[in-house]
Write a protein that binds this DNA or RNA. Structure first.
Lengths: 124, 124
DNA sequence: TGAATATATGAGCAAGTGTTCATACGAAAG
DNA sequence: CTTTCGTATGAACACTTGCTCATATATTCA
């Protein structure tokens, strides 16, 4: 036993046990926690947020459209779209040579609306 | 002119101009965009998400409580709390030797609820 | 005052992230 | 078939991030 499992944990003795128990009981299962945090992390990047916003406003856009609208390289857009696709936040469909993307459902827009309202409001 | 400003942008010619114009018009101002993405990024980390969840469930917790509830080092918790504090997502108050933290307002809980609903629902 | 406790914070490091560059893939046109 | 266009993707890179460790600050108690 070279490692103390409580190393650095909490050397204090005045823990509010009731509150801690309540917090522990309310914890999300790990899988849900990771799912939520990954969703928020994906939206917590300016480029991906702009992509989602553009799709929300325009409905459908091909990679080329997004590249033009955001003034970013096709490669950068495509990489980010791949992440959003893997997380099922966007869906896509091929139209000839183009790949046309759209938001997968309304939840993303709703989340965006709540977050924007918070950011616009509380902070001056 | 050693640099082409359109380098890598979009070599295609079939841009859907109407849709692109719509996307451009709907874009958030840069400051708002960054504020929203930073908010979401802060919540897009498992540790900070657990902290926010614990505070949401227990109301108020000191650093020591959080360290015990999440089974993480005091230093790690304190660092993350500093970030949440700078973003005004939590407020704190000193109570003797303890620093008692709580969520700053209801928006965070609301955001968390929407995100959790999305993550729990659509994806199996 | 001095010791002990609870928290804050700077430095350092391993791991992760977003972009560019080069290139491969897929569909349509010649 | 080959070429061209739109898109996808792997590698490499600078930059960021979340942790640990050590230490500083602040508050209470002897």
């Amino acid at each position: 036993m070279t490692k103390d499992p409580d190393a650095g944990r909490c050397a204090c003795s005045v823990v509010h046990e009731g509150a801690v128990a309540k917090a522990r009981a309310a914890e999300l299962p790990t899988a849900s926690l990771l799912a939520v945090s990954e969703l928020l992390k994906l939206l917590g990047d300016p480029t991906r947020l702009r992509i989602v916003g553009a799709l929300s406003a325009a409905g459908e856009l091909c990679v080329c459209d997004l590249s033009a609208a955001l003034d970013m390289s096709q490669s950068a857009i495509s990489h980010q779209l791949a992440m959003l696709r893997r997380a099922r936040l966007v869906r896509y469909r091929r139209d000839g040579k183009s790949a046309v993307y759209a938001l997968d459902d309304g939840h993303v827009g709703e989340l965006l609306a709540v977050a924007t309202a918070h950011a616009d409001e509380g902070k001056e």
